[in-house]
Nucleic acid binder design. Structure first.
Lengths: 149, 149
DNA sequence: GTGCCACGTCAAGTTGACTTGAGGTCAAGC
DNA sequence: GCTTGACCTCAAGTCAACTTGACGTGGCAC
Protein backbone atom coordinates (compact mmCIF):
# COMPACT_ATOMS: atom_id res chain seq x y z
CA UNK A 1 0.00 0.00 0.00
CA UNK A 2 1.39 3.34 -0.99
CA UNK A 3 1.57 6.34 1.27
CA UNK A 4 -0.41 9.39 0.31
CA UNK A 5 -0.23 12.83 1.77
CA UNK A 6 -3.36 14.69 2.69
CA UNK A 7 -3.48 16.62 -0.56
CA UNK A 8 -3.45 13.46 -2.62
CA UNK A 9 -6.08 11.86 -0.46
CA UNK A 10 -8.21 14.96 -0.84
CA UNK A 11 -7.79 14.95 -4.60
CA UNK A 12 -8.45 11.26 -5.01
CA UNK A 13 -11.38 11.05 -2.64
CA UNK A 14 -12.98 14.40 -3.31
CA UNK A 15 -13.01 15.08 0.44
CA UNK A 16 -11.61 18.46 1.47
CA UNK A 17 -8.41 18.49 3.55
CA UNK A 18 -10.22 20.27 6.35
CA UNK A 19 -12.82 17.51 6.31
CA UNK A 20 -10.09 14.86 6.40
CA UNK A 21 -8.56 16.50 9.47
CA UNK A 22 -12.02 16.68 10.96
CA UNK A 23 -12.60 12.99 10.27
CA UNK A 24 -9.29 12.12 11.84
CA UNK A 25 -10.15 14.12 14.92
CA UNK A 26 -13.42 12.21 15.15
CA UNK A 27 -11.62 8.92 14.81
CA UNK A 28 -13.16 8.04 11.48
CA UNK A 29 -9.85 7.78 9.74
CA UNK A 30 -6.26 7.59 10.99
CA UNK A 31 -3.07 8.91 9.53
CA UNK A 32 -0.18 6.50 9.43
CA UNK A 33 2.36 9.09 10.46
CA UNK A 34 3.85 12.41 9.54
CA UNK A 35 6.42 13.63 7.12
CA UNK A 36 7.49 16.72 8.92
CA UNK A 37 4.18 18.20 9.88
CA UNK A 38 2.26 16.61 7.09
CA UNK A 39 -0.04 13.73 7.62
CA UNK A 40 0.61 10.64 5.61
CA UNK A 41 -2.15 8.20 4.90
CA UNK A 42 -2.14 4.62 3.83
CA UNK A 43 -3.92 4.30 0.52
CA UNK A 44 -6.50 2.08 2.23
CA UNK A 45 -7.91 5.28 3.63
CA UNK A 46 -9.58 5.78 0.27
CA UNK A 47 -11.62 2.66 0.78
CA UNK A 48 -12.47 3.83 4.24
CA UNK A 49 -13.61 7.17 2.91
CA UNK A 50 -15.79 5.40 0.38
CA UNK A 51 -17.33 3.45 3.23
CA UNK A 52 -17.95 6.68 5.10
CA UNK A 53 -19.53 8.21 2.01
CA UNK A 54 -21.72 5.16 1.65
CA UNK A 55 -22.85 5.46 5.24
CA UNK A 56 -23.55 9.17 4.92
CA UNK A 57 -25.51 8.62 1.74
CA UNK A 58 -27.54 5.97 3.54
CA UNK A 59 -28.38 8.48 6.23
CA UNK A 60 -26.02 7.52 9.04
CA UNK A 61 -24.44 10.28 11.05
CA UNK A 62 -20.69 10.44 11.41
CA UNK A 63 -21.07 9.31 14.98
CA UNK A 64 -23.01 6.25 13.94
CA UNK A 65 -20.47 5.50 11.26
CA UNK A 66 -17.67 5.78 13.80
CA UNK A 67 -19.38 3.07 15.83
CA UNK A 68 -19.28 0.78 12.83
CA UNK A 69 -15.52 0.55 12.97
CA UNK A 70 -14.05 -1.79 15.52
CA UNK A 71 -11.09 -0.57 17.53
CA UNK A 72 -8.80 -2.60 15.30
CA UNK A 73 -9.91 -0.44 12.43
CA UNK A 74 -11.81 -3.08 10.52
CA UNK A 75 -15.47 -2.55 9.79
CA UNK A 76 -17.72 -4.01 12.45
CA UNK A 77 -21.06 -3.43 10.93
CA UNK A 78 -24.09 -4.59 12.83
CA UNK A 79 -26.16 -6.60 10.39
CA UNK A 80 -29.41 -5.89 12.17
CA UNK A 81 -28.66 -2.21 12.01
CA UNK A 82 -28.09 -2.51 8.30
CA UNK A 83 -31.35 -4.34 7.80
CA UNK A 84 -33.19 -1.73 9.86
CA UNK A 85 -31.64 1.06 7.88
CA UNK A 86 -32.51 -0.70 4.65
CA UNK A 87 -36.15 -0.84 5.75
CA UNK A 88 -36.06 2.78 6.73
CA UNK A 89 -34.53 3.66 3.41
CA UNK A 90 -37.29 1.71 1.77
CA UNK A 91 -39.96 3.75 3.52
CA UNK A 92 -38.16 6.91 2.57
CA UNK A 93 -37.96 5.81 -1.03
CA UNK A 94 -41.68 5.13 -1.13
CA UNK A 95 -42.38 8.55 0.29
CA UNK A 96 -40.06 10.26 -2.14
CA UNK A 97 -41.54 8.33 -5.03
CA UNK A 98 -45.00 9.57 -4.13
CA UNK A 99 -43.56 13.03 -3.84
CA UNK A 100 -41.91 12.77 -7.22
CA UNK A 101 -45.18 11.71 -8.82
CA UNK A 102 -46.86 14.61 -7.13
CA UNK A 103 -44.32 17.10 -8.35
CA UNK A 104 -44.41 15.65 -11.81
CA UNK A 105 -48.16 15.95 -11.94
CA UNK A 106 -48.14 19.45 -10.52
CA UNK A 107 -45.64 20.46 -13.17
CA UNK A 108 -48.05 19.62 -15.97
CA UNK A 109 -51.37 20.05 -14.20
CA UNK A 110 -53.77 22.18 -16.27
CA UNK A 111 -55.57 23.61 -13.24
CA UNK A 112 -54.98 27.36 -13.04
CA UNK A 113 -53.80 27.08 -9.47
CA UNK A 114 -52.45 23.95 -7.88
CA UNK A 115 -54.86 24.33 -5.02
CA UNK A 116 -57.71 23.77 -7.45
CA UNK A 117 -56.37 20.46 -8.64
CA UNK A 118 -57.91 17.51 -6.84
CA UNK A 119 -54.86 15.37 -7.43
CA UNK A 120 -52.56 17.99 -5.98
CA UNK A 121 -54.84 18.35 -2.97
CA UNK A 122 -54.75 14.61 -2.49
CA UNK A 123 -50.97 14.65 -2.52
CA UNK A 124 -51.07 17.52 -0.09
CA UNK A 125 -53.19 15.52 2.29
CA UNK A 126 -50.84 12.59 1.93
CA UNK A 127 -47.89 14.83 2.70
CA UNK A 128 -49.62 16.28 5.71
CA UNK A 129 -50.41 12.80 6.90
CA UNK A 130 -47.13 11.25 5.94
CA UNK A 131 -44.46 13.83 6.46
CA UNK A 132 -45.97 15.40 9.52
CA UNK A 133 -48.57 13.04 10.82
CA UNK A 134 -46.14 10.33 11.81
CA UNK A 135 -46.15 11.64 15.34
CA UNK A 136 -42.98 13.41 16.42
CA UNK A 137 -41.05 11.91 13.59
CA UNK A 138 -39.20 14.47 11.57
CA UNK A 139 -39.47 14.72 7.85
CA UNK A 140 -36.26 13.78 6.10
CA UNK A 141 -33.76 16.54 5.81
CA UNK A 142 -34.32 16.39 2.14
CA UNK A 143 -32.32 15.94 -0.94
CA UNK A 144 -30.68 19.28 -1.26
CA UNK A 145 -28.06 18.92 -3.94
CA UNK A 146 -26.13 22.11 -3.78
CA UNK A 147 -28.12 24.17 -6.16
CA UNK A 148 -26.57 27.56 -5.63
CA UNK A 149 -23.99 28.56 -3.09
CA UNK B 1 -63.32 29.78 7.63
CA UNK B 2 -62.99 29.59 11.36
CA UNK B 3 -60.38 31.43 13.37
CA UNK B 4 -57.87 29.39 15.26
CA UNK B 5 -55.43 30.52 17.87
CA UNK B 6 -51.84 29.44 17.71
CA UNK B 7 -52.32 26.57 20.13
CA UNK B 8 -55.06 25.05 18.02
CA UNK B 9 -53.05 25.46 14.86
CA UNK B 10 -50.12 23.79 16.56
CA UNK B 11 -52.26 20.92 17.72
CA UNK B 12 -53.99 20.39 14.42
CA UNK B 13 -50.93 20.75 12.25
CA UNK B 14 -48.36 19.13 14.49
CA UNK B 15 -46.14 22.17 14.07
CA UNK B 16 -44.79 23.64 17.32
CA UNK B 17 -45.93 27.14 18.30
CA UNK B 18 -42.34 28.35 18.21
CA UNK B 19 -42.07 27.03 14.67
CA UNK B 20 -45.30 28.76 13.71
CA UNK B 21 -43.98 32.07 15.00
CA UNK B 22 -40.78 31.37 13.13
CA UNK B 23 -42.69 30.66 9.93
CA UNK B 24 -44.66 33.86 10.35
CA UNK B 25 -41.47 35.83 10.82
CA UNK B 26 -40.13 34.29 7.62
CA UNK B 27 -43.30 35.20 5.78
CA UNK B 28 -44.37 31.62 5.20
CA UNK B 29 -47.64 32.03 6.99
CA UNK B 30 -49.57 35.08 8.18
CA UNK B 31 -51.77 35.57 11.18
CA UNK B 32 -55.08 37.20 10.50
CA UNK B 33 -54.92 39.35 13.60
CA UNK B 34 -54.65 39.26 17.34
CA UNK B 35 -56.96 38.64 20.20
CA UNK B 36 -55.16 40.63 22.81
CA UNK B 37 -51.63 39.51 22.30
CA UNK B 38 -52.49 36.18 20.80
CA UNK B 39 -52.21 35.46 17.15
CA UNK B 40 -55.31 34.28 15.39
CA UNK B 41 -55.05 32.28 12.23
CA UNK B 42 -57.52 31.58 9.50
CA UNK B 43 -58.11 27.87 9.27
CA UNK B 44 -56.69 27.98 5.74
CA UNK B 45 -53.31 28.18 7.40
CA UNK B 46 -53.55 24.43 7.89
CA UNK B 47 -53.59 23.90 4.15
CA UNK B 48 -50.67 26.24 3.85
CA UNK B 49 -48.75 24.33 6.47
CA UNK B 50 -49.46 21.12 4.59
CA UNK B 51 -48.05 22.75 1.49
CA UNK B 52 -44.97 23.76 3.43
CA UNK B 53 -44.59 20.23 4.75
CA UNK B 54 -44.89 18.90 1.22
CA UNK B 55 -42.21 21.24 0.03
CA UNK B 56 -39.90 20.36 2.89
CA UNK B 57 -40.41 16.67 2.29
CA UNK B 58 -39.55 17.21 -1.36
CA UNK B 59 -36.30 18.82 -0.32
CA UNK B 60 -37.05 22.50 -0.71
CA UNK B 61 -35.65 24.89 1.86
CA UNK B 62 -37.96 27.24 3.70
CA UNK B 63 -36.54 30.06 1.66
CA UNK B 64 -37.35 28.32 -1.58
CA UNK B 65 -40.82 27.53 -0.33
CA UNK B 66 -41.35 31.16 0.59
CA UNK B 67 -40.68 32.07 -3.03
CA UNK B 68 -43.44 29.75 -4.12
CA UNK B 69 -46.09 31.94 -2.60
CA UNK B 70 -47.15 34.99 -4.53
CA UNK B 71 -47.54 38.25 -2.64
CA UNK B 72 -51.28 37.75 -2.63
CA UNK B 73 -50.73 34.62 -0.64
CA UNK B 74 -51.78 32.17 -3.31
CA UNK B 75 -49.34 29.50 -4.39
CA UNK B 76 -47.27 30.57 -7.36
CA UNK B 77 -45.42 27.42 -8.07
CA UNK B 78 -43.01 27.40 -10.92
CA UNK B 79 -43.80 24.33 -12.98
CA UNK B 80 -40.30 24.08 -14.34
CA UNK B 81 -38.94 24.15 -10.82
CA UNK B 82 -41.26 21.32 -9.90
CA UNK B 83 -40.18 19.27 -12.89
CA UNK B 84 -36.54 19.89 -12.05
CA UNK B 85 -37.06 18.86 -8.50
CA UNK B 86 -38.93 15.77 -9.62
CA UNK B 87 -35.94 14.80 -11.74
CA UNK B 88 -33.60 15.45 -8.87
CA UNK B 89 -35.81 13.39 -6.62
CA UNK B 90 -35.69 10.67 -9.21
CA UNK B 91 -31.89 10.60 -9.17
CA UNK B 92 -31.94 10.56 -5.41
CA UNK B 93 -34.38 7.69 -5.39
CA UNK B 94 -32.18 5.68 -7.71
CA UNK B 95 -29.21 6.30 -5.49
CA UNK B 96 -31.08 5.37 -2.36
CA UNK B 97 -32.44 2.26 -4.02
CA UNK B 98 -28.93 1.11 -4.81
CA UNK B 99 -27.99 1.91 -1.26
CA UNK B 100 -30.89 -0.07 0.09
CA UNK B 101 -29.94 -3.08 -1.96
CA UNK B 102 -26.41 -2.74 -0.71
CA UNK B 103 -27.46 -2.57 2.89
CA UNK B 104 -29.83 -5.43 2.43
CA UNK B 105 -27.14 -7.57 0.94
CA UNK B 106 -24.60 -6.59 3.56
CA UNK B 107 -27.08 -7.55 6.25
CA UNK B 108 -27.19 -11.15 5.07
CA UNK B 109 -23.80 -11.44 3.43
CA UNK B 110 -21.94 -14.54 4.61
CA UNK B 111 -18.49 -12.99 4.17
CA UNK B 112 -16.78 -12.68 7.54
CA UNK B 113 -16.13 -9.01 6.96
CA UNK B 114 -18.00 -6.84 4.54
CA UNK B 115 -14.80 -5.73 2.96
CA UNK B 116 -14.22 -9.27 1.79
CA UNK B 117 -17.48 -9.44 -0.07
CA UNK B 118 -17.13 -8.60 -3.75
CA UNK B 119 -20.70 -7.41 -3.97
CA UNK B 120 -20.25 -5.05 -1.05
CA UNK B 121 -17.07 -3.73 -2.58
CA UNK B 122 -18.90 -3.15 -5.82
CA UNK B 123 -21.56 -1.16 -4.01
CA UNK B 124 -18.84 0.74 -2.24
CA UNK B 125 -17.28 1.70 -5.52
CA UNK B 126 -20.67 2.75 -6.81
CA UNK B 127 -21.20 4.86 -3.73
CA UNK B 128 -17.81 6.43 -4.07
CA UNK B 129 -18.56 7.21 -7.67
CA UNK B 130 -22.11 8.33 -7.07
CA UNK B 131 -22.20 10.04 -3.74
CA UNK B 132 -18.79 11.62 -3.89
CA UNK B 133 -17.52 11.40 -7.39
CA UNK B 134 -19.98 13.85 -8.84
CA UNK B 135 -17.44 16.60 -8.52
CA UNK B 136 -18.18 19.16 -5.85
CA UNK B 137 -21.67 17.90 -5.54
CA UNK B 138 -22.61 17.13 -1.99
CA UNK B 139 -24.15 13.89 -0.95
CA UNK B 140 -27.71 14.27 0.20
CA UNK B 141 -28.16 15.23 3.78
CA UNK B 142 -29.60 11.83 4.26
CA UNK B 143 -32.70 10.29 5.57
CA UNK B 144 -32.21 10.69 9.23
CA UNK B 145 -35.44 9.76 10.92
CA UNK B 146 -34.91 10.76 14.50
CA UNK B 147 -33.70 7.52 15.91
CA UNK B 148 -32.54 8.67 19.30
CA UNK B 149 -32.09 12.22 20.26
C1' DG C 1 -60.60 43.59 40.78
C1' DT C 2 -56.92 40.74 40.75
C1' DG C 3 -53.94 36.88 40.15
C1' DC C 4 -52.43 33.43 37.04
C1' DC C 5 -50.63 31.54 33.14
C1' DA C 6 -50.25 30.99 28.45
C1' DC C 7 -49.29 33.87 25.34
C1' DG C 8 -45.96 37.72 23.60
C1' DT C 9 -40.89 39.54 22.14
C1' DC C 10 -36.02 39.31 21.43
C1' DA C 11 -31.65 37.41 21.82
C1' DA C 12 -29.05 33.60 22.30
C1' DG C 13 -28.35 28.64 22.14
C1' DT C 14 -28.49 23.95 19.64
C1' DT C 15 -27.03 20.34 16.27
C1' DG C 16 -24.11 18.30 12.59
C1' DA C 17 -20.66 18.67 9.57
C1' DC C 18 -17.61 21.21 8.30
C1' DT C 19 -14.99 25.78 6.84
C1' DT C 20 -12.38 29.82 7.86
C1' DG C 21 -8.97 32.69 10.06
C1' DA C 22 -4.97 33.75 12.74
C1' DG C 23 -0.65 32.66 13.75
C1' DG C 24 3.07 29.00 13.64
C1' DT C 25 6.38 25.45 11.38
C1' DC C 26 9.08 22.92 8.33
C1' DA C 27 10.86 20.62 3.71
C1' DA C 28 12.50 22.10 -0.30
C1' DG C 29 14.08 25.16 -4.09
C1' DC C 30 17.25 28.86 -5.26
C1' DG D 1 21.08 29.93 4.47
C1' DC D 2 16.99 31.96 3.57
C1' DT D 3 12.55 32.55 1.55
C1' DT D 4 8.39 30.43 0.27
C1' DG D 5 4.28 28.13 0.50
C1' DA D 6 1.69 24.36 1.86
C1' DC D 7 0.81 22.26 5.70
C1' DC D 8 -0.04 22.52 10.91
C1' DT D 9 -3.20 23.77 15.36
C1' DC D 10 -6.93 25.73 17.73
C1' DA D 11 -10.71 28.60 18.17
C1' DA D 12 -14.37 30.54 16.16
C1' DG D 13 -17.67 31.05 12.45
C1' DT D 14 -21.40 29.18 9.20
C1' DC D 15 -25.90 27.35 7.81
C1' DA D 16 -30.72 25.80 8.43
C1' DA D 17 -34.42 25.35 11.09
C1' DC D 18 -35.81 25.75 15.07
C1' DT D 19 -35.79 25.77 20.42
C1' DT D 20 -34.88 27.85 24.80
C1' DG D 21 -34.54 31.42 28.19
C1' DA D 22 -35.47 35.72 30.30
C1' DC D 23 -38.61 38.90 30.98
C1' DG D 24 -43.10 41.30 29.82
C1' DT D 25 -48.46 41.45 29.26
C1' DG D 26 -53.27 40.88 29.09
C1' DG D 27 -57.83 37.83 28.88
C1' DC D 28 -60.29 35.08 31.81
C1' DA D 29 -61.61 32.48 36.15
C1' DC D 30 -62.79 33.43 40.65
Amino acid sequence: MAELDITKVARQSGVAPSALRFYEEKGLIASIGRRGLRRQFDSSVLERLALIALGRAAGFSLEEIALMFAPDGRPRIDRQMLADRADQLDRTIRKLSAMREGLRHAAVCPAPSHMECPKFRRILRAAAGGALGARSRRAPDGMRMQTHR
